[in-house]
Nucleic acid binder design. Sequence first.
RNA 1: UCCCCGGUAGCUCAGCGGUAGAGCAGCCGGCUGUUAACCGGCUGGUCGGCGGUUCGAAUCCGUCCCGGGGAGCCA
Length: 468
Amino acid sequence: MDKTEFTVRDILAGRAPGDAPVTVKGWVRTRRDSKAGISFVHLSDGSSFHPVQVVAPNTLPNYADEVLKLTAGCAIAATGTIVPSPAKGQPFEMQASAIKVIGWVEDPDSYPIQPKPHTLEFLREVAHLRPRTNVIGAATRVRHTLAKAIHRFFDENGFFWVNTPIITSSDAEGAGALFRVSTLDLANLPRTPEGKIDFAQDFFGREAFLTVSGQLNVEAYCLALSKVYTFGPTFRAENSNTSRHLAEFWMIEPEIAFADLSDDATLAENLLKYAFATLLNERQDDLAFFDERIEKGLVAKLSGIVGSEFVRMDYGEAVAVLERATETFEFPVKWGIDLQSEHERYLTEKYAKKPVIVMNYPKDIKAFYMRVNDDGKTVAAMDVLAPGIGEIVGGSQREERLAVLDSRMTERGIDKEHYAWYRDLRRYGTVPHAGFGLGFERTLAYVTGLANVRDAIPFPRTPGHARY
RNA sequence: UCCCCGGUAGCUCAGCGGUAGAGCAGCCGGCUGUUAACCGGCUGGUCGGCGGUUCGAAUCCGUCCCGGGGAGCCA
């Protein structure tokens, strides 16, 4: 991009010179013609929510042959002078002196992306073209800024980003079904003398899978660098068909040493508030769009969260609240049950009307690595529940006592040999530590008001869907 | 995987036993410093597939496919 080229964002912000011709490149959103002898072409390059208005006079040499044939989706380079717009709708516009068509739309009649609202369901079926829409473009920019805000928060607080492996052999974390990674010839599998598949001949000499969580690995780095986090893709081969599940999704997993569950909850709350505040500050146009078209009151909702405390309650208190509720639940509430979606929704949407942190769950419904509390009945686990989306954070203080960890593994029938390296962390300089997983797409859905995580990731993977 | 709802023009939908419709998009024309403009005209369909009921099926029945919502699992 040479010095005379500017983005739509720069032009609308007044950062392009007004005394010399500049060029902007992008894709046509709409074209309106005036018989007074000009056409108005709205041009988007994705750099900002709003397009730039290019005013094309009929004195352009290619006006009749090309400008009047521009339709939604055509790629052009427009050159001209940036002037304050005489009409309402935009602060600046371009008086074009040249419009060069770079790419036509073949068969405009059937081009799927039109200057009108489409259903999100339809847009998922044209996943390669949907970034050209307002809603997916805005979601993409918010996703970027959210990711940057999360990294910045950790950086400013002394955390190190640890890239835990995508391919693992940890297969019993209780976090769902796994995708197998193998280079064996499926049509001609090697067998052991007992007739089982001989994974010793596979690429890694053992069974391998795509990771469902970087937690166990990041714990190892936590017990050396004190404050660490992962931010990367994770994979679950669950046959989940809901608006909140993806087979491939991104997760943020901080892990802090010399810390307990309360520290963990505070970290989660601070992270979310920081991220939301950043979006309110840096993505105003996009959030205004989501507020207007996707979820009324979105900006006020986020501002409210930034400025208030999350509600914290013990699992026992949560059960008591649910038992007192006048609402009738499909699943009856009593101490010991895992909270159902309807229960979580009640707590966060009706009872607190903001994010709720539920802490100290019964140990029998939680994973083996969560620290057993002094009561012997509960573990130091916490979930952050958000209105409309449910669980966005799941975390715990980890069991740092080797004897307790071993007995928990025995209870669950987990092979200690397989977790020898994880047990080592408790043998050599063990300390209390805690962490959580934050679902990136669920968080993005929450901050945009988008009801389905499939619209919060560029190319969603769900059961039966990996076409694009 | 289970339970519901839906599939009609490129898109959004109406029609729900009797000759396939509207809005938007596209094309043509009119008007206009316009703002996902406005006015007129035109083009555009195996009514998801297959089978059945009926004189006659987009409409009723069966089945399969596809999409969505909810549940479970979880982030």
